[in-house]
Amino acid sequence: CHSECLGNCSQPDDPTKCVACRNFYLDGRCVETCPPPYYHFQDWRCVNFSFCQDLHHKCKNSRRQGCHQYVIHNNKCIPECPSGYTMNSSNLLCTPCLGPCPKVCHLLEGEKTIDSVTSAQELRGCTVINGSLIINIRGGNNLAAELEANLGLIEEISGYLKIRRSYALVSLSFFRKLRLIRGETLEIGNYSFYALDNQNLRQLWDWSKHNLTITQGKLFFHYNPKLCLSEIHKMEEVSGTKGRQERNDIALKTNGDQASCENELLKFSYIRTSFDKILLRWEPYWPPDFRDLLGFMLFYKEAPYQNVTEFDGQDACGSNSWTVVDIDPPLRSNDPKSQNHPGWLMRGLKPWTQYAIFVKTLVTFSDERRTYGAKSDIIYVQTDATNPSVPLDPISVSNSSSQIILKWKPPSDPNGNITHYLVFWERQAEDSELFELDYCLKGLKLPSRTWSPPFESEDSQKHNQSEYEDSAGECCSCPKTDSQILKELEESSFRKTFEDYLHNVVFVPRKT
């Protein structure tokens, strides 16, 4: 048989008469490798580009789960590009990614509803959504962080984005990388972005840091009482949809009607710091009717980097990364020049730590249904340095008659930039024990000054392991946590139920 035959053949030295091919099969003959313009397919066939392209389009058009959109890589027609490569849609070739590779997620039936953290986790790592997304989240724990972890990498949506009755959302900033909504599939009414009845939605994105392009379709905003109209108009300008909307697409009466839409800028007039305090004062603000001013709200939190936005980490279910302080308005003076500047002394802060701070007014709604208010920009203030805590785990070892090696770990709280350490030492008198000992005694162990690591005695271990207080009263049991108490109650309830079950099964009433 021919060298490319495997198993047997019907005619000697003829690659077209093989029972099976050793390498690849091409047009009725066995070959060692697939010549151009053919590609290896499933490690035994040679196919042309049209064959591989037909497989790709067949799966793409069917949208069946589990099928493969075949691509070409290293002269092979394979189910998908290997790690580190992405497909070129024009020629199906796998090309190296520039940075992290995109991950295209194809949605069944063309859309997916995100109504819980669990459903959001199914899209973790996706960068391109081939379909439409509907966000409908009523509640949950730590929602802002969970949504950002699972949806934060999405850069492109081919269909539309719909935010509907998501009472738990305060902001859409968890879509931190969303840059493009194509609108290839539109919501009824030709809408590519749809926001309806979101009672706590206050911000779409921080438009000073976020760009969003909507290729096709219109915007729809109705019944978002805490979303200011200025935020919607800003989205029109940034996304390129200005002029597409009709009169009733953006409701003037049901958007922002319960919001404090600040239209003035508060400026800080005085800032002073110490290692654990920050004193702030800002310019006074009074609405047209000074009785509408209820006070100020001061927001602050630790910020290692200057990239904080107002609604980071917030949701309507209680999660809030900001510390909020309510401040009463100052006494009002008739003389504008003698107006008191409101302020606040922030206490209990960490030394040498940068804080993000902003302040906003708290006002009631005027009778004319106009909203007044003022808010400052987010500023960054760093507390002063102070003395560091003591170095940890000092170790001293003498390696000769004239040297001592000293080692330690950095302090747990540096409280500033540590530039150097101060080492103090003092000579001590020799131990009298060394002169009084009889060095001729056998088995004498000389006193040693070398360091030995501390260890816990058996008594201390027994005390720590004991669940009861000892007789001397030195140790006591740790208080039980809520989960331990709940577990004990469940076990007790189970024992009672099981005992009742045994009584009912074992003891049967005697027939009379």
Rank of each mutant, 00 (worst) to 15 (best):
Trp282Val: 03
Pro351Phe: 06
Trp282Cys: 01
Glu187Trp: 15
Leu219Pro: 05
Asn224His: 14
Met297Leu: 14
Glu368Trp: 15
Leu345Ile: 13
Thr353Trp: 03
Lys234Asn: 12
Lys253Trp: 14
Asn334Ile: 05
Glu264Pro: 08
Asp249Trp: 11
Thr213Tyr: 07
Asp328Ser: 05
Tyr380Pro: 00
Gly159Asp: 01
Ser376Leu: 00
Arg347Cys: 11
Val363Asn: 11
Ile134Trp: 11
Asn141Gln: 08
Ser230Leu: 08
Val397Met: 12
Gly256Ser: 08
Leu172Thr: 12
Leu279Tyr: 15
Asn255Arg: 04
Ser396Met: 04
Gly295Arg: 02
Leu212Arg: 00
Ser166Val: 11
Thr127Val: 03
Phe296Ala: 05
Gly159Pro: 00
Asp367Leu: 11
Ser321Asn: 15
Gly131Lys: 01
Gly139Tyr: 04
Asn320Tyr: 11
Asn141Arg: 07
Asn190Thr: 07
Asn198Met: 06
Lys407Ser: 07
Gly110Gln: 14
Lys209Gly: 10
Trp352Glu: 10
Leu298Phe: 13
Phe193Leu: 11
Ile135Leu: 05
Trp344Thr: 05
Gln382Thr: 11
Ser366His: 15
Ile357Pro: 00
Pro410Phe: 07
Phe311Met: 07
Val128Gln: 01
Gln314Phe: 10
Arg281Phe: 15
Glu264Trp: 13
Leu107Pro: 13
Ile232Leu: 13
Glu302Val: 04
Gly243Lys: 13
Phe220Arg: 15
Glu231Ser: 13
Lys226Thr: 05
Ala149Ser: 05
Asp328Lys: 02
Ser260Phe: 02
Ser321Gly: 05
Trp205Ile: 02
Val363Arg: 06
Phe299Val: 05
Glu264Phe: 08
Ile135Cys: 01
Ser239Ile: 13
Trp286Thr: 09
Glu155Val: 15
Asn263Thr: 08
Cys228Leu: 04
Ser396Trp: 08
Leu279His: 15
Val397Gln: 15
Lys226His: 04
Ser321Gln: 14
Val238Ser: 13
Asp393Ser: 13
Lys267Met: 07
Gly125Lys: 11
Tyr194His: 11
Asn190Gln: 12
Ile134Leu: 13
Pro330Val: 12
Lys162Ile: 04
Phe290Tyr: 10
Ile135Thr: 02
Phe358Gly: 15
Gly313Val: 12
